[in-house]
Design a protein around this nucleic acid. Structure first.
Lengths: 206, 206
DNA sequence: ATCCCTATACGACTAAGGTCCAATAGTATC
DNA sequence: GATACTATTGGACCTTAGTCGTATAGGGAT
């Protein structure tokens, strides 16, 4: 199922830090990829496996916090572990509020970072799994015609075929046909399935 | 509907801080209640309206972070704004990770705290509303007999009455009776309603 | 001992949902 | 212009679900 191995990104402008972190992470047999700036990282194509980011705050160009903000726009934002030599409390508060895994001050214990990386990768795996599941449902939804989406929204509101037909000014038979198509395309084996799937769909729910 | 007015709790061992904060908060016409220690606050009966907590970290006895941890056990934990004179980054990280609204260092702008209090109260209102809604559904669920709960779980799995009857070794008629009771007691006007309500119920869903 | 709740069951009936087959018309795409 | 998809409707038929009333039996409370 998952042919991707975990990957740790490092973004830090300090050569020696990147080198040390790389050695540390490789010592536990994990892949590492380094970047010297936020901009460099942003231009990398997205990695499709479990990954996380070890990120310095203070850097020329886009700061670590700015990079976090940019990345957060994505629904599939990767978990971030901040490391910094001269961090402040407001920085750490902002970082954690924005979803960072942790905020480490240099110097720190090697093992502390490794533990956080493990935790971050686990979180990413979770997120990816949920996201993949939602994508699947959304793709099914997108295969519905406009009319079918309309029917779907009424169905999950609990409306009867009869009421839907009246509302839309079409016959009950037609509603049944659409409804059957909806069930098939959404791969719902029961109405209960459909209602559950509908939670994440962009349809009127009242 | 809601006869309670917003209330701000202050827990700080420093008299002058409590006094200053009280004056500040009262200046915008909000109620305040002060405590000199975590222990004192814990012995206060729960306030049933929208409220939040302005909390010092360093105190004799239970620290602010410890108090937060204790309070977090409750599902209706009130939002916390930390204020501290000698905070550290690890402290702030821990506080925010545990759900604190913010972590302010003294000295801070009056308006900054007031803004955070406003935000905290809004969050508490939200939480309370959701919680009240869930309580309602849970209470309905608790009014179900064991058999009815069993039927409910099969129904939201999408099983047919026939299958449920077979599974439980009873007749389909009986399943229908229980099912009707479930719908009535849960105040579900449609199967869709029931499925949605079941999301928060302690029932097997597979 | 009596009463209420729960769980069970039956019959008969109505309503609703699902399926199969067939057909028409508009629109889009090639 | 031909083909494919979408939306629509019809009829016939079957399966499910919901409702009405009635009834039995066990358990617990008064």
């Amino acid at each position: 199922m998952n042919e991707f191995e975990p990957l740790v990104f490092i973004v830090d402008d300090d050569d020696s830090v990147r080198k040390a972190l790389t050695r540390l992470i490789q010592s536990v047999n994990m892949k590492v990829e380094c970047f010297t700036s936020s901009e460099a990282f942003l231009s990398r194509p997205r990695y499709e496996g479990p990954c996380c980011l070890v990120l310095d705050i203070r850097m020329p160009g886009l700061s670590g916090l700015d990079l976090q903000e940019k990345l957060a726009k994505d629904k599939l934002a990767l978990p971030i572990i901040f490391i910094t030599g001269h961090g402040t409390i407001p920085m750490s508060v902002r970082a954690i509020k924005a979803g960072a895994v942790d905020f480490l001050e240099k110097p720190f214990e090697d093992q502390a970072l490794l533990d956080l990386i493990k935790q971050a990768l686990e979180r990413d795996r979770q997120t990816r799994q949920e996201y993949a599941h939602q994508r699947e449902i959304l793709e099914r939804f997108e295969s519905l015609t406009l009319r079918e989406r309309e029917i779907l929204s009424y169905v999950v509101m609990g409306k009867l075929n009869k009421q839907i037909a009246l509302q839309l000014g079409i016959s009950e038979k037609t509603v049944k046909v659409h409804r059957a198509h909806v069930m098939e395309k959404m791969q719902a084996k029961s109405l209960a399935d459909l209602v559950r799937a509908s939670r994440i769909l962009p349809i009127p729910k009242v």
